[in-house]
C-alpha cells in the first residue's frame, strides 16, 4: 500500500454578495413561465425527479434556480448546464410550489442566446440549419447509401421555407453574432 505524498486541494471560491446581480430573478420572472420562480424553497423534488440528473452531475435544476435567485447571472447564462434540460417536464409536474422549472430553463436559454452565450455545438447546428435548412448537412455518401437501399433522394424543398422563417424571426442575425465567439 502506498500513500500519496501530495495532497491535491480543490480551489474554493467565496462569492461576495456584491457580485450578485439581484435583479436577475426579476428579469427571469418577466419571461413566460418565470412568474413563480420566487416560490422555490429548494426542496429538491425537481432534482430528484430529473432523468438527466440521473446520468450526469452537470445538470441540477434546483442548483440553477438557486443561482438565478441569488443573482449569479453571468455564471448561469454562460454555463452549459442550462442546455442540458431535456424538457421532459417531470420537475414541473412534481413541483409543489407551481414553479415552472422547464419553462424557466427555456427562458434562461433565450436570455443566454440574446447575450451571445450558447455551446459551440449548438451554434454549429444553427448555422447548418440556416445554410442547409437542416441540422446536419447532406453529404454525397448519404445519397449514395440511400440509392443503394432503394430510398429516394432527400428532398431539399424545405430549405427556402426554413430560410424565410430564419430571416423573419431574426434567428440568422442572432446566430451571426455568435459565429465569431
Amino acid at each position: 500500500m502506498s500513500i500519496s505524498t501530495n495532497i491535491t486541494l480543490e480551489e474554493r471560491e467565496t462569492i461576495r454578495s456584491s457580485e450578485f446581480e439581484p435583479k436577475f430573478a426579476e428579469e427571469v420572472k418577466k419571461h413566460p413561465g418565470g412568474e413563480k420562480l420566487s416560490q422555490c424553497f429548494q426542496c429538491g423534488a425537481c432534482a430528484g425527479s430529473c432523468p438527466v440528473g440521473k446520468i450526469t452531475g452537470s445538470y441540477n435544476p434546483r442548483h440553477i434556480l438557486r443561482m438565478v435567485m441569488l443573482g449569479l447571472r453571468r455564471e448561469v447564462l454562460s454555463s452549459d448546464s442550462i442546455w442540458l434540460c431535456a424538457l421532459c417536464y417531470t420537475c414541473q409536474e412534481r413541483c409543489s410550489q407551481g414553479v415552472e422549472i422547464a419553462d424557466i430553463m427555456l427562458a434562461l436559454r433565450n436570455i443566454a442566446v440574446s447575450e451571445g452565450y450558447a455551446p459551440k455545438a449548438l451554434v454549429e447546428q444553427a448555422i447548418s440549419l440556416i445554410e442547409n435548412g437542416r441540422l446536419a448537412a447532406i453529404v454525397g455518401s448519404t445519397d449514395r447509401l440511400r440509392s443503394k437501399l432503394g430510398l429516394p433522394k432527400i428532398s431539399t424543398s424545405s430549405k427556402d421555407i426554413i430560410k424565410k422563417i430564419v430571416v423573419t424571426t431574426g434567428f440568422d442575425k442572432l446566430i451571426e453574432k455568435m459565429r465569431g465567439n
Binding site: C43, C46, G48, S49
Partner: peptide, 9 residues
Amino acid sequence: KFIRGKPSE
C-alpha cells in the same frame, strides 16, 4: 438520519 430534500418518487 435527516435528509433535507423532498423525495421525487
